[in-house]
């Protein structure tokens, strides 16, 4: 229960507030100032330099007819849905680690999961780009060595995809039909260090008496997961889901690095964030990009509040 502090006492200890002042200043300067500046500039025709002209809501009304922006939500929706499924391996691994009887081994597995976090995300992106290289990438070498490529060529003949050909390396990032699969495949086997740790925290908070009771009832290993573990880590799943949706909607680094500023073949990799980047740094329409960012912010806010309202966890 929170204790109440008298106003007099609050004012008496005013010096203490000086300690939090630097943090407030930094947050204001580096978090709120850029965000507020973006709100301000969204009402201007501004090309990033010194000159800008106030144009009211013109940028926002332009967004309504922006087919690329709204079209990019189709791509992001597919990626967001895929990302939800890509959470499964992390949950699975967390459960496996949790069920290890040796605490020592649990510790070492946790270390193994955390270790990749040291590798900068940019390096991971570059490595994956290298995997997709048509001529000497690992993916094509794997397909050739295992004979899957021949199978794909056969399927291509049958379905008339016009993508896979014998003796022609597969351009994973150079064919519009392969862009989304390549983006989904990225990060295989999709084990997120942070997600695993978050789920582990949830799993470790489950009392041992629950497991003991379940064992007395003769519950199988899978049933334990389905009826005990999964429902009890739903809070963590929900938090991860919210962060995942926000992250997916905001992110464009992967698409930018793998496909370039135009979203690659057929613009299939164009996501809202990348379109915002494209308008700002390629078309020089910084004011419009700010308006796009603001629009994206509202959408994310809406989705988060929907998620908070409807994805409830009954404990």
């Amino acid at each position: 229960m929170p204790t109440t502090i008298s106003k007099k006492k609050v004012l008496k200890e005013w010096k203490l507030y000086l300690f939090i002042l630097p943090s407030f200043l930094f947050i204001g300067l580096f978090a709120y100032y850029p965000a507020l500046s973006a709100v301000y500039h969204s009402f201007f025709s501004w090309s990033g330099g010194d000159t800008k002209e106030f144009i009211g809501l013109d940028n926002f009304s332009r967004i309504l007819g922006d087919t690329v922006f709204w079209g990019s939500f189709a791509t992001i929706s597919v990626l967001a849905i895929a990302n939800v499924f890509k959470m499964i391996p992390s949950i699975f691994l967390a459960v496996l680690i949790h069920r290890l009887s040796s605490e020592r081994w649990q510790y070492w597995y946790r270390v193994l999961v955390v270790l990749p976090m040291i590798v900068p995300s940019l390096v991971t992106l570059f490595i994956w780009k290298f995997f997709y290289d048509p001529n000497f990438g690992i993916l094509n070498q794997f397909l050739d060595a295992t004979g899957i490529k021949t199978l794909l060529v056969g399927l291509d003949h049958f379905f008339h995809w016009d993508i896979f050909f014998q003796n022609v390396p597969v351009a994973w990032l150079g064919e519009s039909a392969l862009v989304i699969p390549a983006l989904i495949l990225w990060g295989f086997p999709w084990i997120g260090s942070v997600s695993v740790l978050v789920f582990l925290v949830g799993l470790q908070s489950i009392g041992s008496q629950i497991y003991e009771a379940a064992e007395l009832d003769g519950v199988s290993s899978f049933q334990k997961f389905l009826y005990i573990e999964f429902p009890l880590i739903m809070t963590q799943v929900r938090v991860t889901l919210v962060l995942l949706i926000i992250g997916t909607l905001q992110s464009y680094g992967l698409q930018f690095l793998l496909l370039g500023e135009n979203g690659g073949p057929g613009g299939r990799g164009m996501v809202p964030g990348l379109w915002m980047f494209n308008r700002a740094f390629i078309a020089g329409e910084f004011g419009y990009a700010c308006a796009l960012g603001l629009c994206l912010f509202v959408i994310i806010l809406l989705l988060t509040s929907l998620n908070n309202k409807y994805v409830r966890v009954d404990k």
Binding site: F44, W46, D50, T51, K52, E53, F54
Partner: peptide, 8 residues
């Protein structure tokens, strides 16, 4: 006329 932002 030159001051930015340009306003009415």
């Amino acid at each position: 006329l030159g001051i930015q932002p340009k306003t009415q």
